[in-house]
Design a protein around this nucleic acid. Sequence first.
DNA 1: AAGATCGCCTGCAGGC
DNA 2: TGCCTGCAGGCGATCT
Length: 287
Amino acid sequence: MPELPEVEVVRAGMQRHFAGARITDIDIRALRSVRRHLDGPQGFSAALADQRVVSFERRGKFIWALLDDPNTALVVHLGMSGQVLAQRSLQNLPVHARVILSLKPAPHMVFSDQRMFGGMHVDALIESAGRLVPQSMAHIAADPFEPVFDVVAVAARMRRSNSAVKSVLLNQQVVSGIGNIYADEALWRAKLDWARPASNVSLAKLQELLDAAKQVMGEALAAGGTSFDSMYVNVNGSGGYFSRSLNAYGREGEPCPRCGGAIIREKFENRSAFRCTRCQRRQTAPL
DNA sequence: AAGATCGCCTGCAGGC
DNA sequence: TGCCTGCAGGCGATCT
């Protein structure tokens, strides 16, 4: 499941393969993959035809390409299963190829997405959280790697919520880029039970949690940035290059690498949460 | 009005 | 063998 580090690897690959090239053809194979484009598929194609992709930007899990037209951008979101491939030939397309942009002089940009939670659309640019971003993602907060990210302010904002601290950490309107895997890893590093109300966690501990999230994503990025083929802009959530260093996520029934306690899996908002029952102990109700 | 829940979507693993 | 259920989870929409 692509979270910030995986998305950044894709962005960097796109920058390397496609930046500066001109879009010569647009092939939409799945209407669902362009559903976020408000003008419909024809409008999507019209907005991109003959445009040059100038550079590739990212905030959190969103990628966008700046175009010749300074007022619009091509937004790419990978969702759960999205990949972007650079292919010289249109033969041997992946089974789930959904949108293909042909570029000159560059490989074809193939957007592949098994589950179609992701997609592409063209959008107007507006100012938000210190940057020019596509309008449709103006509500997305800065991610921990942006210069504008203010860890003290974000921790303070988290503390104002009564929701489970994991829920707030996953809220892309508070801090972006963190998904289920890195949330559990950050909580493990900070020795926090995911279910604790954020309002019940100290400001210092919330800062520690945000620092841990940045650290674990930074390490994944360092490991992933060197490990993919030059022609294949890869995203692989489950079996990929970053799963080997996980301490809590997916380790149900294993001993905690830090204290030897038991890692358990619990239900959380219709998904999973992993924690150590010893060093991420659940507090008994106060008073 | 913040916070919780739902629906989207496909492939695969496991149980019977 | 084949059917069924659950699971994976990002994110916007829709409820309370």
